[in-house]
Amino acid sequence: MTRRLLVVGLALVFAASYAAAQVGTQSGADKRRSGYQDMGEALQKMQDDDTANPGMLFVQLGGQLWVKATGAADKSCADCHGAAAASMKGVAVRYPAIPSGGDLPVDLGGRINLCRTEHQKVDRLPPENRDLLALAAYVAHQSRGLPIAPPEDPRLEVFRQQGAEIYRRRQGQLNLSCAICHDDNAGRKLAGIAIPEAHPTGYPIYRLEWQALGSLKRRLRNCLVGIRAEAWPLDAPEYTALELYLMERARGMKLETPAVRP
């Protein structure tokens, strides 16, 4: 047990120093790269141009859902939160977080579902549901350009440590870890594809391969399937733990939602 804690502790110290090293001390140069920087110019243009970015269609849909009353309470998000441009600015950059009265971290989609069940009195939306992704994209879009800023909540530490541990653990029939690809071999070519550093800067993303908007969870599942590991069920806490670790690792990088990825 102590050994395990030590390993976890080391992983975290490593993560912190990794972030510090990447941000740079004197020079101020941040060496971390968003997936955006590793994709071709055509895709960068597509992401940058709101009229060409397919993710913006979902942001618009999210904006419609934001003002639509629903559930037994017959309330819209706007009824409680007002204009998202003001109330939701800076929210997505600090998720996952522990909701008031709760003790487990939830991601942004989980927070939206809590508002549905607690305030709107309506069912949760299932993972990867279009309306849920659209709402998450709309909320996250209000933070576009803001630096990722995980909350200083000590209760999150144990979950983040769990994420760090998963990140470094080899798994699957191919016996690889996230770290092997995204730390040790980032920038190299895996069958011709540049391996990104795995910063969760643009979620939900519009991925051309999916022809759809998708969550970070869906992206992580793709990586797990790739190494022939058993993917956790979509509601598993492991994804939130990984997201907590990845967000800490990306602290200070700018949110791009809705990002476009190949």
Partner: peptide, 9 residues
């Protein structure tokens, strides 16, 4: 010596 191998493999 492998961990969490997908069921089909």
């Amino acid at each position: 010596g492998l961990q969490r191998v997908a069921r089909s493999f």
